[in-house]
Design a protein around this nucleic acid. Structure first.
Length: 270
DNA sequence: AGAATTACCTGAGCGC
DNA sequence: TGCGCTCAGGTAATTC
């Protein structure tokens, strides 16, 4: 489950490795992801040059001469740059062939990933058009969260995981940022003060930025041929239900919120 | 409009 | 060793 930091680290690695290179071929092994891969992708991509690699939330945006290839890694997807001679495995769904015998290979066992094409601005694509602000950019702050939260009835954790509220905050970082800001995941948004909303916005920005920094530091300079890993040792609460809180030593509690695994410290988080 | 539910998919972990 | 079961989870589509 690549979250925003992993997607950003991938973006940087691919931009470094592939920007300016020409796409020489496309191999699609199945169109049947959760949403079908556009069948005319080979025609659209063949011979085009990669101009830049961007990101919106957890969507990777590859700008070609004639439009944008949009890829979401879903739960289990990853992208690697490999020698073209590398045999394809069971879950290798898409290869983009570049010069120098390199392929950009999309692999996704659970097929929750998404491959789209946009002829124009990718932000206008229907699946991206309604996304909220980028958490690491201007426009996402405590005031914004506070204003938005007045009329919402879901738990605050569900609020920040809503992509129309803020882009790219998934389950792991929602848990982590709520712990950092000392807020219970089940809190009603309209109960949050301006100060609490501010602390939450800061916490979200911090946990994401720190994870990107850490991921970048360990990133293989030549682009990992192994999928990027998470940094499970760094998580303070995610995956640690029943274990001691790093801050107070009390036992972390695990509940379900919106059918998502939710971990918090009942002592530290109010 | 916002909230809740469903659907998609397969590896991993479990009990037996 | 292998079978059957349950679970995990991002997000689009659908329903309430």
């Amino acid at each position: 489950m690549p979250e925003l930091p992993e997607v950003e680290v991938t973006r940087r690695a691919l931009a470094e490795e592939l920007t300016g290179d020409r796409l020489q071929g496309v191999v699609i092994r199945t169109l049947k992801l959760r949403l079908p891969i556009p069948s005319d992708l080979p025609v659209l991509l063949q011979g085009r040059t990669l101009q830049e690699v961007g990101r919106r939330g957890k969507y990777l945006l590859f700008r070609l001469d004639n439009g944008w290839l949009i890829i979401h890694l879903g739960m289990t997807g990853h992208l690697r740059v490999l020698p073209a001679s590398m045999a394809a495995g069971k879950h290798d769904h898409l290869d983009l062939l570049f010069g120098g015998g390199r392929i950009l290979r999309f692999t996704d066992p659970r097929k929750f990933g998404t491959v789209l094409w946009s002829g124009g601005e990718p932000h206008a694509h229907p699946l991206l058009a309604d996304m909220g602000p980028e958490p690491l950019e201007e426009g996402f702050d405590g005031e914004y969260l506070h204003a938005l939260s007045r009329s919402r009835s879901v738990a605050v954790k569900q609020l920040i995981m809503n992509s129309s509220v803020v882009a790219g905050v998934g389950n792991i970082y929602a848990n982590e940022s709520l712990f950092r800001s000392r807020l219970r995941p089940s809190r009603s948004p309209h109960s949050l003060s301006r100060e609490e909303c501010g602390a939450l916005a800061v916490a979200i920005r911090e946990v994401l930025a720190e994870s990107i920094l850490q991921g970048s530091t360990i990133m293989n300079f030549r682009v990992a041929e192994e999928p990027l890993r998470y940094h499970p040792l760094d998580f303070r609460v995610y995956g640690r239900g029943g274990k001691p809180c790093f801050d107070c030593g009390g036992m972390l509690e695990e509940i379900r919120l919106g059918n998502r695994s939710t971990v918090f410290c009942p002592h530290c988080q109010k």
